[in-house]
Design a protein around this nucleic acid. Sequence first.
DNA 1: TATGTTACCGAACATATTGTTCGTAATTAT
DNA 2: ATAATTACGAACAATATGTTCGGTAACATA
Lengths: 201, 201
Amino acid sequence: MDRRQQKTRDAVFKALSSLLEKKRFSNITVQEIIDEANIGRSTFYAHFDTKDELLKAMCTDIFSHVFSDELMSEETHDFSGNNNGLESKLTHILYHLKDNEKNIVGILSCESGELFMKYFKEYLSEMFSQYLSQYLNGVKMKAPADFVINHLVGSFAETVKWWIDNRMKYTPEETARYYIEVSFIDRIIPDQYVLNSTNKK
Amino acid sequence: MDRRQQKTRDAVFKALSSLLEKKRFSNITVQEIIDEANIGRSTFYAHFDTKDELLKAMCTDIFSHVFSDELMSEETHDFSGNNNGLESKLTHILYHLKDNEKNIVGILSCESGELFMKYFKEYLSEMFSQYLSQYLNGVKMKAPADFVINHLVGSFAETVKWWIDNRMKYTPEETARYYIEVSFIDRIIPDQYVLNSTNKK
DNA sequence: TATGTTACCGAACATATTGTTCGTAATTAT
DNA sequence: ATAATTACGAACAATATGTTCGGTAACATA
């Protein structure tokens, strides 16, 4: 990619991020973004068709780092704790989010976080579905499977939002622990399963 | 309130509700609302300063019915189940939401639900805080109290969204049951507490 | 029924935002 | 060096916002 393109793209992301700290997304004008990023009007529209596309691109950019290929794979080598690696996966996500702290805080603050959360949940949903598929059949619950997934995704997203709203004053490990503590994950992935895990085919 | 005012207000709410079924809130213009409601331009602005104020008024209107005074009080006479009336409270909320189904489905559909959810959570948060204040001190958990409240509120809100997205095909009782099933409420309000509840001062 | 009040109408207006076009200048890759 | 790509910025049409105001209709009260 041309350096100029990358430079423009970065400037726009940074500008939007900065503006989001002060006002909500829908009340930010393209002109403000242009001024803040210090680029030409036509340049903006050469990069993004609309303001919405810009936000989408920005979220996609962030999540491509947060949800790395490694993370999305079912193979995890950390089985510490009694939830078969899930907790370490979540901790991992939180660390990556912290790396992007400057951008994300802007997006989430000032009542504009809903759009970010929407995209975030899409990624989380895929991760949880893939990860839990091996367990869900064996669990006896009244609630439908999609409800269970939705619940786990939604409440982890809420956890992240709470964490960021609290300026990340808790460590990723603590935060992931809190989530596991209030979730019912121990009823889906019982300790027993971990003990027998070496015997699974 | 003047009948004309009420009539105009209703027409605007109905119009917005209808438009929200087709497109997201931020892409709806005041002109479209005016045309759909069949009112004069100046009339709209006499009622609402901005489009945002309109949505807020509409949500407040709905929630004033859903979160009735009776519901918000700590005194509940239904202690069936082992969660000291919480489940029946939630079921109650779901029934009221179903009464407003026509309006709510419009608000929640087409990627515009986030704003509704925001206001919804504010009400839920107050309810849960008030309701759980008597229990939280006695529970031994690592997670901070505000995290716990946030988790319960967020995941119930997610439950409601899931329920509505599924066209309310489950009954309020079933849905509340699913929520209680995946929550950790039984660790906050143990059965034992209910048995002793007649002895509390 | 008469009267004062209030709400609605709708056209017109200034202002602001959006998204496009195009000729020119600067930067980049080879 | 040079050809291709990108950024610039002014100008533009189209659309949306929020206000003003004179006239009309509906309301409450007596």
